[in-house]
Design a protein around this nucleic acid. Structure first.
Lengths: 340, 340
DNA sequence: CGTGTTTTGATTGACGTACATCAAAACATC
DNA sequence: GATGTTTTGATGTACGTCAATCAAAACACG
């Protein structure tokens, strides 16, 4: 029951270790018939190449850089500390993880961060994208240099990025609508939407998904013009309080970006009977869920996302396949009863 | 920027490689002051022991065995194929994964499977527990032999198992109730519960959680006596159809175990207006979600659970810490709009 | 058959750590 | 200062693969 090594395969196939190695790393200079004999022996003996030994021999190490928003929302400070946490874990596998925090919503800052790092950016980059042509171009230049690129949290389609690591934000918006539709029992009423930023694709997509479902399935509910909160609790509270005061028929609320603390403060003050779905799991949303001020919170798991981005970049660098099941990023729905 | 090796640490601390090695693996025979000098050098140089090299040198390999139900529910056949899938992945890390499928709900079968394997059971066991003293005893015997044990999917508390890998089933039941409470708009009505087996702790716990919330928060809803479906679609359909016919006031339904196909057939036939929450994501529940026959499905991700169990057993075997964030098993809530 | 080319074998030295051994040095004790 | 003990150094082998070398063998082609 001992492990099968390349040496065993060589003996079984009647070739030398060198030849097995050539086949294993598909180097040229091996007859097709020999390749076949060797691969046959491999799966007959159930040979699995030992990752540890292979990595060691290759002496390969990896260097990935995260480019994330320096924004002060609960979500992004979570993301940043998760990257720090992942760094220690990744180091064990010879993966160095760098991080650059850039001013939020500033495409040029992202580009500068990339260019500024030069070659030290490493083998792969995970970046929180902002919709902009300069970012698209920067991604293309990275790819041209052989650097692997994934977008992270917020996508930028029609770019050269190889993958998006994050949730399906349209689906998140749809789920929010689907929940509110079922939560709201009033025969008719208004629904308020508190948005974050119009330049963040993830926010735009959530809004899209939300409106899709509202329009298609909730003729009895009227979606009010959205509130732009700019992710700042103070701004959100002020605008939302005003809106609630002016619209007594509001029966539902979806907050799809940052500044959730402002949402909570406003609805507590307003004391209307409305169903609320928000994003971000912070101490404030936790408390509000428990108190019953909020009905559900839709979140993504930053810790999973960071680990996933690293694994995906490593797979790209190694040229191996991505384990799709493991890398699926879920939209998590928290209610009072399944808070972690 | 080259990697820091144990040799570098030795030079920095002014000792030999052998001494660093002694410190690294806390072997005896090193003066305290020297230990201090070495560890100081380690974190000054930011030394991280190379897992690949360490594993290779140790020549250690792992052997874990899953003991799972041979039941024909969609969920368990999923679990079994995920174990097969994980086997290939684990092999790369010198982990051999075995599986024994035992007749469902039979404690003695579990014990026999354990005893029957003898020493070949390996370094760790993940088992789908059934409430029973003989199982508890078997776990204790395994632990006494130094075999690590985690329960999987279904827990057995007050046993010697070192950890439970699975969702918080009480919470799942609570979430189901919390959703139904919000979904149901009728001022009053009945709620039906379709249970699986009374001997499976996970089913019992879900039911507990469900009733907790119903009793505490939904005085307007009456929970009807539960239906025991024995996880068989035919049985479920028959009993549920009968119940629906006899109780026209049913406005909500929670199906917490297998045989969901029977639930779907019954509610389609009954054509009542009721909100439905079930478990298991199969082709049937998918279709029913899309058709609107079901409102939400609460599931656990078998693929994640299998990988988690393997990682946890490995951590126990190595005596290293478990990464709690990574090993948290989520209760996933699927609606029509976030189906994967 | 000789020539050139392709394929294979044999061998060697990494990679970074684990682990064991023996000798040398440092230290403690009387 | 002789003795015994603890601590350290020096060294070597092993793990399984990668990568490179050079020589030998097999093959193709005219």
């Amino acid at each position: 029951m001992a492990r099968v090594t390349a040496q065993d395969v060589a003996e079984a196939a009647g070739v030398s270790l060198a030849t097995v190695d050539r086949v294993l790393n598909n180097r040229k200079g091996v007859k097709d018939s020999t390749i076949e004999r060797v691969t046959e022996a491999m799966d007959r003996l159930n040979f699995v190449r030992d990752q540890a030994a292979a990595n060691l021999a290759r002496g390969r190490s990896y260097r990935f850089t995260f480019i994330v928003s320096a924004g002060e929302t609960a979500f992004f400070s979570d993301i940043r500390s998760e990257i720090d946490a992942a760094r220690a874990l990744a180091a064990k596998d010879r993966i160095e993880v760098g991080m650059v925090a850039v001013p939020p919503l500033d495409p040029q800052a992202i580009v500068d961060a990339i260019e500024g790092r030069g070659e030290t950016i490493g083998d792969g980059v995970a970046l929180v994208a902002v919709e902009s042509q300069v970012v698209r171009d920067a991604i293309k230049r990275l790819r041209a240099k052989g650097v692997h690129v994934v977008t992270f949290i917020s996508d930028i389609p029609n770019s050269a990025r190889e993958r998006f690591v994050g949730i399906d934000n349209v689906a998140a918006g749809r789920v929010a609508a689907s929940l509110l539709k079922r939560f709201v029992c009033a025969p008719a009423g208004d629904v308020a939407v508190v948005a974050g930023s119009g330049t963040l694709r993830d926010h735009v997509e959530r809004r899209m998904g939300f409106e899709q479902v509202m329009r298609a399935e909730c003729p009895h509910l009227t979606v009010l013009p959205w509130i732009e909160g700019e992710e700042m609790a103070g701004v959100v509270e002020e605008k939302l309080s005003k809106l609630l005061a002016e619209n007594p028929e509001v029966v539902g609320l979806y907050s799809l970006g940052g500044g959730t603390r402002g949402v909570i403060d406003a609805i507590r003050a307003a004391d209307q009977d409305l169903r609320v779905v928000t994003t971000e799991l912070s101490e404030h949303t936790r408390a509000a869920l428990i108190a019953g001020d909020i009905d559900a919170v839709l979140v993504q798991d930053p810790s999973h996302e960071v680990r996933s981005a690293i694994r995906v970049l490593k797979a790209f660098t190694d040229g191996t396949a991505v384990n799709e099941k493991q890398e699926r990023i879920r939209i998590e729905i928290f209610m009072r009863d399944n808070l972690p």
